[in-house]
Every structure is written in structure tokens, then in C-alpha cells.
Amino acid sequence: MNTSSHEISLTVNGRAVEATVESRLSLADFLRRELGLVGTHLGCEQGACGACTVLVDGRSVRSCIMLAVQADECELRTVESLAPGLAMHPLQDAFHKHQALQCGFCTPGMLLRCLELIEENPDITDEEAREGISSNSCRCTGYQYIVDAVVEAAEQMRQ
């Protein structure tokens, strides 16, 4: 079988990373297995559920259906970047306050998608938040508290 390795250099959560990756390695597996950033979760590995959502050059992407080698020269953000210190990011805080998570498995991908939504639309409404998060499955919450959290986080982040 053919296989090959490739040198890539990229920025992950603000840090420069250089790595050699196998062709078939997905970006999600690269983050999880090579970099130990296990906050990026795998739910379906076919791009359907969104648990693996990360930001690539500021845009939400399914990291299970992007190759690590395709992330060469890209700037990545994963959930681990949201609150590097003790204080949580306002979006995480709003999720906490509103109980916008139960099992927590969709949460990292959901947070990054929500961050993108708020950055694109700082005055986001309930309806816009609901439509925006329809990209990501949550099996626990029925989505309502996530909508609440996104709208409140947007308010906080405007201030």
C-alpha cells in the first residue's frame, strides 16, 4: 500500500508547530493523537455531527474530514485556547451559567462554532443562534439552553 509522510508547519492555539504526518491522518487525529489536544472529539468521523469542529484560519471546520497535511501553514484554534488561564472565556461562562451542556461531548465543537457565530454577528438573536448551531448535533440538551447561552455571551462580549 502507498503511504507517505509530509512535513507541515502550522500555528495551533498561538504556538508554532512543526510535525511530520502520514497522508491519511485526519486533522482531528493529529490534534488528539500527536498534539494531545483531546478536547477535540470524534463522534461520527463522517462530518455529520460536528463534535470535532475547530477553527481553521478563523473558520469552523470539521476536523474529522480534513487531512492534517491540509492544515499546513494554517492557524488553528481548538477548545483548549479559549481559557488558557484560570478565568473562563465569557462564552464558556455563559454555557456554565445556563447549563448549556450535559454530557459535555459536543461542547468543545459547539463552543467554537458559537464563537464564530458571535464574531460574525455580535447582535445575534435567539432565532439566528438556533439556525447557526444547527450545524452541530447535541444529543443531550435539546439545544435550548445553548441558544440562551449564545445570546447572553454575545451581550457580554459586546460590552
Binding site: 488528539r32 489536544l37 483531546v38 478536547g39 477535540t40 472529539h41 470524534l42 481548538t78 477548545v79 483548549e80 479559549l82 481559557a83 473562563m88 464558556q92 454555557f95 456554565h96 447549563q99 451542556l101 454530557c103 459535555g104 461531548f105 461542547t107 468543545p108 463552543l111
Partner: peptide, 15 residues
């Protein structure tokens, strides 16, 4: 239980 999940540090079995 939420802070660990919100930070991506859930310690799920695949982690």
C-alpha cells in the same frame, strides 16, 4: 462537572 467539560478536559475514555 462543567468546568472540565468546558475546557475540553473531560477525560473521556478515548482521551
Amino acid at each position: 462537572e462543567d468546568p472540565k467539560f468546558l475546557r475540553g478536559r473531560g477525560n473521556y475514555i478515548d482521551d
